[in-house]
Nucleic acid binder design. Structure first.
Length: 314
DNA sequence: AATGCGGGGGA
DNA sequence: TCCCCAGCATT
């Protein structure tokens, strides 16, 4: 067989682009060996269980989600169960997973499922995206992991794997770009089952091997083709644009303090008790106003000559 | 595109 | 200490 075009006839087609290295095969094979045994991957999982796990995992690490997820599903095994629960119970069960607005939205989501989807989780992309607290990532993840459907699952792990293996960069850009989504889409296998497997496998590789710090390249199924390794593992070109989120003394810390106080109190908390929780008055007022606006805290009517008290809603 | 939004644990 | 973690909603 010769690659030389015939001397006559139509002009030769332009040389085809070099065949892209297969990322899917090695990563899926690696996953078959190294996948963690997580409860939301168990055969008896439900779509609702998968959805709950995905919402909890939005910015909270797996090790902290796992026990919370077990307790949550034991208490509210279906959307109808969560929809009927007092919101204060929901926020207390959320405990310290962080970003308690997620708990509020998860309950709103359960109520929408009951009212508009017969108490079931839909497998339709648009229906999922319309649910409170469900964005592009979560909708895709639920489709892939709960229903085994093809979806573009692009989370922080997959972004990092592709930034390294394909772009040769240490870390992806701080904010996700349209081009990244399109590239990820082009990589997703055509078959539903394979696509769902690739989604789980690429995320797992990022979580266990291709980690943000101290990646374990010696254990990586892509090491021989990785552009970042080939380039000598250069530093992060986006480092100058990453701002570290301040924490101490921020409104967020005050909000967290107030929520912890209210979670721990079976009765409404008078204003003066909150005053002791955080001495800086303008900041405390700002945080409280924000919590009230978010619906995470309600003001409880007090006696005629008493200062107001505060509690979790519902 | 940029911000605000919790909390904890490993490097 | 710093930084990262299966993001979302709002501006």
């Amino acid at each position: 067989m010769s690659l030389v075009p015939p001397a006559s006839g139509p002009a030769p087609a332009p040389a085809p682009a070099p065949a892209p290295v297969d990322l899917v095969g090695p990563v899926v094979d690696w996953f078959d060996e190294h996948a963690r045994d997580l409860p939301w991957r168990a055969p008896d999982r439900t779509p609702w269980g998968v959805l709950v796990s995905e919402v909890m995992l939005q910015q909270t690490p797996v090790v902290r989600v796992e026990p919370a997820w077990r307790a949550w599903l034991g208490r509210w095994p279906t959307p109808a169960d969560l929809a009927a629960a007092p919101t204060a119970d929901v926020l207390r069960a959320w405990d310290r997973l962080g970003y308690p607005r997620r708990a509020l939205r998860l309950q709103e989501c359960a109520r929408v499922l009951v009212e508009r989807h017969g108490g079931r989780v839909p497998d339709d992309e648009d229906a999922l995206l319309a649910l409170p607290g469900v964005g592009a990532y979560t909708a895709a993840a639920v489709r892939a992991f709960a229903f085994g459907r093809r979806a573009v699952v692009l989370d922080t792990n997959v972004r990092r794997v592709l930034a390294r293996a394909v772009d040769g960069e240490a870390l992806p850009a701080p904010t996700q770009t349209r081009a990244e989504v399109e590239r990820a889409r082009a990589l997703v296998p055509a078959q539903d089952a394979t696509a769902a497997r690739w989604a789980a496998a690429s995320m797992e590789l990022g979580a266990l091997v291709c980690t943000a710090r101290s990646p374990r390249c010696g254990q990586c199924p892509l090491v021989s083709s990785c552009a970042w390794v080939a380039a000598g593992r250069p530093g992060d070109v986006h480092a100058h644009r990453r701002r570290t989120q301040a924490w101490h003394g921020t409104d967020r810390q005050v909000r967290g303090r107030v929520m912890a106080l209210l979670r721990g109190s079976p009765v409404p908390v008078p204003r003066h008790v909150l005053d002791e929780a955080w001495p800086a008055t303008p900041q405390r007022a700002r945080a409280l106003a924000g919590l009230l606006a978010d619906g995470l805290v309600v003001e409880v009517a007090a006696g005629a000559d008493e200062a107001p008290a505060y509690a979790l809603p519902g």
